[in-house]
Simulated assay, not measured.
Amino acid sequence: MSGETAIEVCNVVKRFRLAASAGSLKTAALDCLRRRPARRFTALDDVSFTVSRGETLGLIGANGAGKSTLLSIIAGTMVATSGHVRTHGVVSSLLELGAGFHPDLTGRENVLLYGAIMGIPRETMRRRFDAVVDFSGLAAFIDQPVRFYSSGMYVRLGFAVAVQVDPDILLVDEVLAVGDADFQRRCLEKMAEFRRAGKAMLIISHDMNTIRSVSDRIAYLDHGVLKGIGAPHEMTARYGADSVAANGGASSREWGTGEARIESVAMVDAAGAPCDVPPADQMLRFRLAWRAPKRIATPTFGFSIADGEGATVFGSNTEIAGFDLPFIEGEGTLTLAVDAAALHAGGYTMSFSLHSRDHAVNYHRLEHALPFYLPGRARFDGVCHLPTAWS
Results as ranks from 00 to 15, higher is better:
L171K: 02
V90E: 14
A116V: 11
G107I: 03
L171V: 13
V79M: 12
G107F: 01
M153R: 04
T77E: 06
K190W: 05
D182K: 06
Y154Q: 09
H84A: 15
H102D: 14
F194K: 07
I117Y: 11
F135K: 00
D134Y: 00
A116C: 14
L176I: 11
G179N: 08
R128E: 14
E174A: 07
K190A: 11
V111T: 11
G119R: 13
M153V: 06
K190E: 14
G158M: 12
D134T: 14
F101N: 02
M191R: 06
M191S: 07
V91T: 15
T124P: 00
M153C: 03
V85C: 06
F101T: 04
G83N: 06
A116Q: 12
V85P: 02
E189L: 10
A162V: 12
V111H: 01
D173G: 02
F194V: 04
R126S: 05
A139F: 00
H88T: 12
L188C: 11
L105W: 10
L157M: 12
A99D: 08
F101R: 03
V165F: 06
F141G: 01
Y154C: 00
G83Y: 06
H102K: 05
L171S: 06
F194S: 07
S82W: 02
A162C: 13
D104L: 08
Q184Y: 03
C187G: 07
S93K: 02
R126Y: 12
D130M: 06
E174V: 13
P145E: 07
Q144I: 00
